[in-house]
Design a binder for these strands. Structure first.
Length: 195
DNA sequence: CCCTGATTCGC
DNA sequence: GCGAATCAGG
C-alpha cells in the first residue's frame, strides 16, 4: 500500500469522522489491519476500543520484559458516537447525515437496525452546518420538492470543494445506485473489497 | 456467530 | 514502514 499524502489524508479524515477501521479500510480498498496499523503509526487518536491489552503472554514467546504499565490513563468518559449508523432501511428515504457532532441533548430516535449486527453504511455525516446542500434532508417545505440527491460525501468536509454526490438516489435510499452499493454492504460479503 | 479495535512481528 | 496474524472485548 502506497501511503501517499492523499491516502493518509483520507485515512485521517475517515478516522476523525469516527468510522470503524474496517469501514475505512473498505472505503480505501485496504484491510482494516492496514488502517489500524497506519493509524497507530501515525499516532492517530485511538477511538473507543473495547480491548485493553495489558499483558500478553502468548504468541511467539518472546516475552520481552514489558515495561511496567503506569496505568494512569485519563479516564475520559466520553460518549463516543458509534460509527455504526443505522442502516437506512427504506423508511427514512432521506435520513442521512445524522449530525452527530451537534450537541444533541436529547437522544435522537435512532432507527433500530435489523436483528442482525447491522453494519454501518459508512454514514457520511455532514458538518454541523451543511450551509448549502443537504437541504432536502430536512426541508420542511412540502411544496418545493427538490429533486433528491445522493448525499455521499465527496472530498474532505470543511474544505472548499467538498460536496455531495448529488446524483439521483435510488428510490427510498439516500444514495445513488453507485454509492448505495458501497454504503450498504452485505454483512457477510463485505470482507472482500468492492474493487 | 458476528462485530470491533490493538498489538505484535515478519517482511 | 507496512500489514497479516493474532489477540481480545462486546
Amino acid at each position: 500500500m502506497e501511503w501517499t499524502d492523499e491516502t493518509i489524508a483520507r485515512l485521517k479524515e475517515l478516522w476523525a469522522e469516527g468510522l470503524s477501521t474496517a469501514e475505512i479500510g473498505r472505503r480505501l480498498s485496504i484491510t482494516k489491519n492496514a488502517v489500524v496499523g497506519k493509524a497507530h503509526r501515525l499516532s492517530l487518536p485511538p477511538r473507543p476500543s473495547p480491548i485493553r491489552r495489558s499483558d500478553k503472554t502468548k504468541v511467539a514467546g518472546t516475552e520481552t520484559a514489558a515495561k511496567a504499565a503506569p496505568a494512569v490513563a485519563a479516564p475520559a468518559k466520553e460518549k463516543a458516537p458509534q460509527a455504526t449508523a443505522p442502516v437506512a432501511d427504506s423508511k427514512p428515504a432521506v435520513a442521512a447525515a445524522p449530525a452527530v457532532d451537534a450537541p444533541a441533548p436529547k437522544p435522537a430516535p435512532q432507527p433500530k437496525a435489523e436483528a442482525k449486527p447491522a453494519k454501518a453504511p459508512a454514514a457520511p455525516r455532514a458538518s454541523a452546518k451543511p450551509k448549502t446542500s443537504l437541504r432536502s434532508i430536512s426541508d420542511p417545505e412540502p411544496k418545493k420538492r427538490r429533486g433528491p440527491s445522493c448525499c455521499w460525501p465527496i472530498g474532505d468536509p470543511g474544505t472548499p470543494g467538498f460536496h455531495f454526490c448529488g446524483a439521483t438516489p435510488l428510490p427510498g435510499k439516500p444514495y445513488c445506485a453507485e454509492h448505495a452499493q458501497i454504503a450498504y454492504v452485505k454483512l457477510r460479503d463485505r470482507r472482500d473489497n468492492v474493487a
